[in-house]
Amino acid sequence: MISLIIFYIISALVLIGSAGVIFSRNIVYASFSLLLALLGTAGIFVLLLAEFLAIVQILIYGGAVVTVILFALMLTKIDDFRSLSNINYWPISAFLTLLALIVLIIGIYQTKIDTQNLGLVKFSKFSNDLFEYWGIPFEIASLVLLVALIGAIVILKDRGNDS
């Protein structure tokens, strides 16, 4: 009963945060709303007994991603974003977002996860599975991150030589 109440509170927070990201005119408010939505998602993961996922969500999105976004925002003038928000690409982005939403909804209805009988997976079992059965996807993911890291450095280095 209480977990249901907590679920509604957290979902309300997530919805408020997401609405804030979209409707806020102030870009810094929008990023704080993004933080609220992401932390709320972590709360929903906790309710689903996925504590590892919840902690990763807080660490990566709450700690790192939002901090980096804010860092970038504070080094730029806020007036620069006012003109950016009036660009005419919104039909394309709306179409793409709608497409992603449809794919997600189909995906959610296709999966057959039993949400009634949740069991807590021990972290040791989770990590063993991650490195034994999912070793190659894990390595590919880390390779992608490494490529992104090196790419960022290369781009930055070229900029540095130009100026």
């Binding site: 704080f32 933080l35 902690i55 990763v56 807080i58 660490l59 709450g62 700690g63 790192a64 939002v66 901090t67 804010l70 860092f71 504070m74």
Partner: peptide, 13 residues
């Protein structure tokens, strides 16, 4: 570790 990262945001705010 995860929770302590969040306090950075407070300082930025």
């Amino acid at each position: 570790v995860a929770i302590s990262v969040l306090s950075v945001l407070g300082l930025i705010m």
